[in-house]
Design a binder for these strands. Structure first.
Lengths: 208, 208
DNA sequence: ATTATTTATCACCAGTCGGTGACATGTGCA
DNA sequence: TGCACATGTCACCGACTGGTGATAAATAAT
């Protein structure tokens, strides 16, 4: 009767399971130790298997990163909930967009790391992850786009890039430094303060 | 007569010169290859000397980084020129402050890298450099501070942190990605556009 | 000229890296 | 049963890393 299909749990020969374990370990190493300590040896160590399997199942580090990239295809759509109310002004639209982006990014530490590496490291592997992140983000924004037009006389594209840059940098800085430029970003109250300030900026900038 | 003190130039035994060559090579490796390829071997290779000398003259990598940190003590004061006209409103003051910070940061690629590493890598060496950068920045801002007060009813500390975060992130992204979020940041015209948008934000936010 | 001392180089260590071939063992099919 | 294959393990390679002790060579002091 011991010939059941899942007897002992764990060390059974199960390609799919080891495959997933390697993938999970890879994401884990990336999120915790960063790109510095990312390699076949460390991933195999954390996955509890031989590194040879990484070459067999993923074709090496490159293929492994590719798999992680595919895994990130919907990182923001999954995390950012749809806005409760449909925005009726351009200012509101930017506000909800930025709020959704921030909440999604704050939930996904791996994407945070990738965003940070984008500007700190231009190795091929990082570029690969960066591309996957960017594509998913672009698709999400495209889906959020409505028919609202920005006020006249303002460079909306540049302004929004500035706002997104600020939001992103605050999140990255909060994870590693706990704040930025004297502004604490640890507790929920801290974040409420930051989001209030950001919302005020948006409203004043896009005031009709 | 050949016993002059600086005869052939170069391969003479000159501790001070080698010391400086190592320091320069270290900054060079950091700025070009990043923290990834930073180590005694690569620095010694670039400096054209034996790595043993790094241990002798700096006490290892840690001391070398420390020396680089001291070298960065006045990075912003040296680069940011004093404002042409003394700002007469809080809005103007923020504008000149941010403008000076941006121009100084854009000129110093090493500090750019350090700023990027701050949020991407929390190794002890990075923290050391980050600290040196932060101290120099804080001293500069303290020196720029005037008696101007922000308008009532606005969280100036949070707002300024947001603005600085945006400026910094745009600069970092421009160096590695050539732009951010669809906004090109390569040519001078690109930067003029970004700075205009930023100035507009500041004026609208801090309008009296 | 003969020491002492500084400056620089070399050879080597143990450890890790990415990568690969040979091998053992469990699983399913004939 | 026996065979073929899939799965997993091990040992090893060359290259690189940080780090150190011994040694050569040039300068300074006597």
């Amino acid at each position: 009767m011991d010939e059941s299909k899942e007897p002992v749990e764990g060390k059974q020969r199960d390609r799919a399971k080891t495959h997933d374990a390697i993938l999970a370990a890879a994401k884990d190493v990336l999120a915790s130790d960063g790109f510095q300590g990312f390699g076949v040896n460390s991933v195999a160590r954390k996955a509890g298997c031989d590194k040879q399997l990484i070459y067999r199942y993923f074709g090496g580090l490159e293929g492994l990163v590719e798999a992680i990239g595919s895994d990130l295809a919907n990182w923001i759509s999954d995390a950012a909930m749809a806005p409760a109310i449909k925005p009726s002004t351009y200012s509101q639209w930017v506000e909800t967009l930025l709020s959704g982006y921030m909440s999604a990014l704050r939930q996904n530490t791996l994407v945070q790391k990738i965003s940070a590496w984008e500007v700190a490291d231009n190795s091929p592997l990082v570029r690969q992850l960066s591309k996957a992140r960017s594509i998913a983000l672009g698709r999400w924004i495209a889906g959020q786009r409505g028919e609202l037009a920005p006020p006249e006389g303002i460079d909306a594209a540049a302004t929004n890039a500035i706002l997104i840059a600020a939001a992103q940098h605050l999140i990255l800085a909060s994870s590693t430094l706990g704040g930025f430029s004297g502004l604490a970003l640890a507790t929920d109250a801290d974040w409420a303060r930051a989001e209030t300030a950001l919302a005020t900026i948006i409203r004043k900038v896009y005031a009709e």
